[in-house]
Design a protein around this nucleic acid. Structure first.
Lengths: 331, 331
DNA sequence: TTGAAAGCGCTAACAT
DNA sequence: ATGTTAGCGCTTTCAA
């Protein structure tokens, strides 16, 4: 049926063991022999069977990626960073979506990854105690990426990111700065956002005003509601920071409907540097999603090589675009 | 080390063969025996080794997904549709990113999928002749999804989608309708877009005006340029249809900078129904990405079962939001 | 219905 | 440097 290592060995006039060594790039093979085997393999169009190889104790190299929301750009971007690193090292990437709660339960219950993967990357979601315990049971390295922290892996400092945003507005001269925190991200992230907003205003010596932080539901309706609540304040803010670019765009739209111009009347800052933020000319704070993925990939490789998984916090970076400006003349 | 089938068999007091049959759901096992084996497996926390299983001629069930731009929401969405279908059927999903040209070349050159996967899904990209030939060589079913057509699989009718958009504008009373086609999607898609624009205007009895279709580069700069060119026309359009939602948002922004209101002064329609389109209140045409993924998944399953891969064209659907309105009083 | 035996294709010791 | 010998953990004939 398909070409086997034995075929290649025969054609090259060596034993299967030597052929295996030669092809696998392992030592103790004469250069000439290696060449010969390589050529034979080429001619036969041979590719090792990963099953057989693994079964026989060879190639490690399969990592599972657990992702909640594939459609979310940040997950995709992280994957895009992760994939080449892993592939470059010859390890395969198995995808496990756990967006659906049922699927999530099933994943951790079936522990389907057991024996299927040599390591796991958990992308953009926090694991609860039970889930962590299940993973522990698998006895493979687990790298968290883009999560809220708490597990070894890579993430960004959410508090710092949000502060970049608020500080930018303060720096522009704004004194009434609203914040819209929309549900969606893991709790820890939202908390960091709220805290950063509070801290920044406090550090600027501004009186605390609980009304400036509004917590809303996810999606477009949430963003609209948030903007509406802020606008309805006795003294509406001259600038708004949103917990994500998605929310920020919703805020911009709601402002527009209220005949308020961005940034002339109100400045808006997002969080994340969504690909569309550039098109929408939205000032935002870049959370390097790709980089997080790539870093996670490197961590996996190290872990596979026997190392421990460290914790790395990547910096975020303010990206100033056209949705922010100094406060206008009137309020 | 890890629990093997033999362990389970011993504990259940049967032979490995019977245990295998019982666990694998194959016939010729007494119900009572099957139960006993199942329980033993449970108690031992046993999971079959996929390598060994496959090697021994068991479970097929591993499909590769080839994706160019993971970070693009439509790819993510398609994956999100694809994954549960496949997982539900017990097949694993291997991810192969081919966004980077080098990676793409490497993928098709190494033919790494050979023997690694039992089927392939090609997401959102068109294969050239050579690539197709390489895949052919693998002798596994290939399902194209969200491509430009040409290969069996699932896609949407791009021409119809674009026409929905233009027809909507015509229906609102617009007579000068510009189109911004930004580079990015496979050629065929862009062609369909251009043709639909032309055809719709023609069918509406409007004189042909080549200036109304502008082709620009990708990204925010492209969108801005496109809007600018349209605005610079002797007789600027009262409505614009963009080749994607991303571009549409860029157009909206550029319009805003030119102090033109959407939809009061100019209507804008996007294409794709990007998740952010709702937040941005953008009228668009929904290309059901998730559905395409799910459909592709079903096709793979059928193909794995020995069926042929059909070609399915999914309908697109106009989603009217706040970025379109009848033409204003003045131009 | 069940068991025994023979590999699947490869790699890792242990020779040579 | 190369060959020989045993499996890896499972499924599948074939026999009982």
């Amino acid at each position: 049926m398909s070409v086997t290592l034995a075929d290649v060995a025969r054609r090259a006039g060596v034993s299967p063991a030597t052929a295996s060594r030669a092809l696998g790039g392992r030592p103790h093979v004469a250069p000439a022999t290696r060449m010969r085997v390589r050529r034979a393999a080429d001619e036969l169009n041979f590719v090792v069977s990963p099953e057989a190889s693994r079964l026989a104790g060879g190639a490690r190299g399969r990592v599972g990626v657990v992702v909640p929301h594939l459609a979310q750009w940040s997950c995709g971007a992280a994957l895009e960073g992760l994939e080449p690193v892993l592939r470059g090292a010859g390890v395969d990437l198995l995808l496990y979506g756990v967006g659906d709660p049922a699927a999530r339960t099933a994943f951790f219950a079936d522990l389907p990854a057991r024996r299927r993967v040599d390591a796991l990357v958990v992308l953009g979601t926090a694991l609860d105690e039970q889930e962590r315990a299940r993973l522990e049971l698998m006895a493979v390295p687990v790298v968290a990426a883009a999560g809220r922290g708490g597990q070894p892996g890579v993430r960004v400092d959410e508090h710092a990111a949000a502060r970049h945003a608020v500080d930018h507005l303060l720096h522009l001269g704004h004194r009434r700065i609203g914040a819209v925190a929309a549900a969606g991200p893991p709790d820890g992230v939202l908390e960091a956002f709220a805290a950063a907003h509070r801290d920044a205003l406090h550090d600027a010596g501004l009186a605390h005003d609980a009304g400036l932080l509004v917590r809303v539901g996810r999606g477009a309706p949430g963003a609209a509601e948030g903007a509406g609540r802020l606008l309805g304040l006795r003294e509406p803010p001259t600038a708004v920071v949103a917990s994500s670019d998605e929310v920020a765009l919703g805020v911009v739209r709601t402002l527009g409907r209220a005949r308020l111009r961005v940034p002339d009347d109100v400045s808006v800052v997002g969080l994340g540097d969504h690909p569309l933020a550039e098109a929408a000319d939205l000032t935002t704070v870049c959370r390097p999603a790709r980089e997080q993925g790539a870093e996670a990939g490197r961590m996996v490789l190290e872990a596979l090589a026997g190392g421990a998984v460290p914790t790395v916090v990547l910096p975020s970076r303010l990206v100033v675009r056209g949705s922010t400006a100094p406060p206008g003349r009137t309020t």
